[in-house]
Amino acid sequence: MLQLKNIYKEYGGGDTCVPVLYDITLSINDGEFVAIMGPSGSGKSTLMHILGCLDIATRGNYTINNIEVGHAHEEKLEELRRNEIGFVFQSFNLLPRRTVLENVMLPLVYAHVPFEKRESRAIEALAKAGFDTSRIHHKSNQISGGQAQRVAIARALVNNPHIILADEPTGNLDSKTGEIVLGTFQSINKREKATVILITHERDVAEHADRIIFLKDGKIASDEKNKHIRKTIYYDAH
């Protein structure tokens, strides 16, 4: 379970202090599919960085499964990122000169997974993400945007993390491919019981989640169950 209590985030200090998040308190249960929504500058990316242990809050408490993150050392944050969290970015962030398989195996390199087990785990993750496994030896810059995002999802899944953080995952995709990718997230959430946190500024995208947290000017404006879950094309790996 993720718990944030009275989280503040400010950049700079003194006269040049720029406040970004004000007094954020929220809990996200294991296995939830949450969308964090808000306009540009609302602080949603900053919140995602804090949730993803890429950054720490200026004040307040943040715990992941009762482990305090706010005061953790760099090494502890690295360990949490390695074992508990998987990231999916808007621009995919795949290593261009590497194959699909090598990209998905990357987190396993840092998680000390023995070399002989990496390939099978990567192929398994690619299948879960709905990637056509006959193309695993293609270079990552030789595949389409939709396929690239599936590779990125597979990379996020490969280490069996409890939390998947997706920052505008459909931002660089056409609406049809976007729908398929969002369906993949729903599928992963249901099948793998992983907590999925989706950052978006689009209502259509947010409505794929079970719960929508709306941020405005660095504060939680609303936090409610989504009563109008959109029908999506569920991806069925099997």
Partner: peptide
């Protein structure tokens, strides 16, 4: 730089 950021996001330590 972006690659370094990605590597850190997927669990690479400073030492790595």
């Amino acid at each position: 730089i972006r690659e370094i950021g990605l590597r850190k996001a997927v669990g690479a330590s400073k030492k790595n």
